[in-house]
């Protein structure tokens, strides 16, 4: 459903080394590498946000995409509950971890950072989509959250969804992903 050949992506200028990448339906692929190597930029290019400077990027026609970025939804001071957030993306609260099930009707700005992050992530992960792009999904999550996320990524992939995960968390990537692509530092001419 997604194929990249010698892809170089960036913002005002190229920010990644050329990369070959492919993703099939039902597959979870991790993108790792040191800080500043361009993992999030590459994900942004898959999402059509960053610029493709060279190479090819092909997405299967008619794909429904969902993307989670590292920015937290700006909900401070707004009367938005977890259920409101899930309804916006079309995600179901079914399957939420026990420590969040009874907090789904509480305002998001009254939840802890980890609870809010997981609900915001869940809203994207369980939105009706064929391809899900996740950028550092384990940020702010404790061990229980990471375990639950790992299990649900697998479940989502079994439903036929392709998932690309950018993460610096090597243990999580090893446990959750079918394949791992490691980005290398770009040579500066």
């Amino acid at each position: 459903m997604l194929r990249a050949e010698a892809l170089v992506a960036g913002w005002s200028g190229p920010a990644t080394s050329p990369i070959d990448f492919s993703l099939q339906a039902g597959e979870i692929v991790g993108l790792t590498g040191p800080n500043g190597v361009g993992k999030s930029t590459l994900l942004a290019a898959f999402a059509g946000r960053a610029t493709v400077f060279s190479g090819r990027l092909e997405l299967q026609a008619g794909l429904r995409l969902a993307v989670q970025t590292q920015e937290v939804p700006p909900v401070d001071g707004l009367p938005l509950s977890g259920r409101d957030l899930l309804a916006l993306t079309g995600a179901s609260p079914e399957g939420l971890p026990p420590w969040l099930v009874d907090r789904v009707d509480i305002r998001l700005d009254r939840l802890s950072g980890g609870q809010r992050h997981y609900l915001a992530l869940w809203a994207v992960l369980h939105a009706p989509a064929d391809l899900v792009l996740l950028d550092e999904p384990t940020n702010n999550l404790d061990a229980a959250g990471v375990r639950h996320l790992t299990a649900h990524l697998r479940e989502r992939a079994r439903e036929g969804c392709g998932i690309v995960v950018v993460s610096h968390d090597a243990a999580f990537v090893a446990a959750a992903c079918d394949r791992v692509v490691t980005l290398e530092v770009r040579d500066v001419d």
Binding site: R49, T69, P74
Partner: peptide, 14 residues
């Protein structure tokens, strides 16, 4: 309006 505020990237990508 709500989706564009909370998930601007999701809004655009859809």
């Amino acid at each position: 309006l709500l989706l564009a505020h909370t998930y601007p990237d999701f809004f655009r990508i859809r």
